[in-house]
């Protein structure tokens, strides 16, 4: 475990907690894409299949449980909570996220490190995570108004993956045979998707103006 990875995991945890906090306290999910949350729940469900078979460390198991429980609770809140669901704007959140699932699955069948069910599901979860933010970014472009918590959520989510890239660079230079092209490329693609959001986030922060994404 290196500092980049720990910082990455903590940032990822913070992003999920910020979101849960927002939904739980103000009982609203305005500006949040349910599609992205469903994709993230699927990412964790397909990535942590080894939760009960491979014990890595208490930290690893605990974090997996937290991510699974939090991502599914967020989906539950937005879909079923009697107050929160009213603030979900399904007419705006129209990204056809099923069109993301199938290509990622087919790609995982073709490009993977080993042709086993577990490995293919793990690879699928990597590709899906890379594109899972798209419905949320599209929704932000549409609604134009980004409230602070949503902006922080997306920012933390992008920061976590950027820190993971530093972690991969660090591990590449410190651990022999640590080469995972699939992880690195999908992680890089994911981070690049956030690049323009980061740009506008920093602009708004620097000029101390409300975060606006160009249409």
């Amino acid at each position: 475990m290196n500092i980049f990875r720990l910082a990455g995991d903590m940032t990822h945890l913070a992003s999920v907690l910020v979101l849960l906090l927002k939904i739980h306290t103000i009982k609203s999910c305005a500006g949040i894409s349910l599609k992205t949350q469903e994709l993230y729940a699927l990412v964790f469900a397909t990535r942590y299949l080894d939760l009960f078979t491979d014990y890595i460390s208490l930290y690893n198991t605990l974090m997996k449980l937290i991510f699974l429980v939090s991502s599914f609770s967020i989906v539950w809140y937005i879909r079923h909570h009697k107050i929160v669901r009213r603030s979900y704007d399904k007419d705006q959140d129209t990204f056809r996220h099923y069109f993301l699932v199938l290509p990622c699955f087919l790609l995982a069948l073709v490009i993977n490190e080993k042709f086993t069910v577990k490995e293919i599901m793990w690879t699928f979860s990597l590709y899906l995570e890379a594109v899972a933010i798209l419905p949320q970014l599209v929704l932000l472009q549409r609604t134009r108004n980004i409230d602070n918590l949503t902006g922080q959520y997306v920012f933390l989510l992008g920061a976590y993956r950027s820190l993971y890239i530093l972690n991969w660079i660090y591990r590449y230079f410190t651990e022999p045979h640590y080469v995972h092209w699939i992880t690195w490329i999908s992680g890089l693609v994911q981070t690049l998707l956030y690049a323009d959001f980061f740009y506008y986030y920093f602009q708004s922060w620097k000029n101390n103006v409300k975060l606006e994404l160009p249409a």
Binding site: D54, I56, E113, W122, N167
Partner: peptide, 10 residues
Amino acid sequence: VKEDPPKDEL
């Protein structure tokens, strides 16, 4: 068969 290293990253 060399067991491939478990996925230790989240």
